[in-house]
Design a binder for these strands. Structure first.
Lengths: 144, 144
DNA sequence: TCCATTTTTAGAATCATTCCAATTCTGTTT
DNA sequence: AAACAGAATTGGAATGATTCTAAAAATGGA
């Protein structure tokens, strides 16, 4: 019998190895966290949530790991919010929306990413679109 | 005879007043700087360039002013780069490109801004698209 | 087991930004 | 012009996210 936990852990491990990243306990934990929490967490949120399970975990390790994952193209770095960086393990094309009043960051699905025509000689290997406004919940609060 | 300087200063003053911002010496200087330097500067760059002319200028004032300008919709806050915020006084639709090797941030003209279809109830009042890759100059260095 | 390399760690250091309380400036009323 | 109230500016301290550093721990061969 194969436990669900093992299945997830194997997917996580494979995804890391596919990108040449040695799957240490800490790296697995950060990657699994991002794959199972689609909340665009900050480094600090990840650290705080993982810390109870890995009491020796250091914030530096979380930062090291996130930087490595971003460098290798395994997760996306999101700068939709000035205060702190956000991370997203979903690499399918989608844009991010931030609500001005509650601060939530939501995924918005799109067919493909928009890459405008660039000046001659410029090459683009990544693009991000950020939309900012008011989410459905906050709009309702105002209208009722 | 009207000096060119006066013309610019008048445009700057009008743009501030149009948005209900009292045109103090410091605010005029920051706004004029942004309108005449299309380099997407950081608060620090603005402070350093303005300081020689306004020796009493404080960094807090530069931050206060930039925050006010962004709040009132007079300039754009650009978060294409994690280290520090960038500012842009051009409100015409355009997207930003950042070169991975030299760090330059360039404007790319577009007809209109892309705003993907949002989930029901979500309203968008601003959107930004960031493209990242290699600029023409850096691509040439590699290919020659 | 021993050794070399990689990874993790805690805490210090850095750096952008905000906060704070005091001062200066502005415009208005006597 | 003096007195005043409110707004803007100021320097420096405080904050908070991130990076750096040097030591300790883990890993994986020979």
């Amino acid at each position: 019998m194969i436990l669900k936990m093992d299945v997830i852990k194997n997917i996580v491990k494979e995804r890391l190895q596919l990108h040449g990243i040695k799957p240490s306990l800490q790296r697995m934990a950060v990657m699994e966290y991002l794959m199972t929490h689609r909340t665009h967490p900050t480094a600090d949120m990840i650290f705080n949530d993982l810390y109870p399970d890995i009491p020796t975990l250091s914030k530096a390790t979380v930062y090291n790991t996130l930087n490595l994952l971003v460098e290798r193209g395994v997760v996306r770095l999101i700068t939709i919010e000035e205060k702190s960086a956000r991370f997203d393990a979903c690499m399918d094309p989608h844009v991010h929306f931030r609500c001005r009043s509650c601060g939530a960051i939501l995924d918005v699905n799109v067919e493909a990413h928009w890459i405008p025509t660039m000046p001659d000689g410029v090459t683009v290997d990544m693009s991000e679109t950020y939309c900012i406004g008011h989410c459905a919940k906050c709009n309702n609060l105002v209208n009722n």
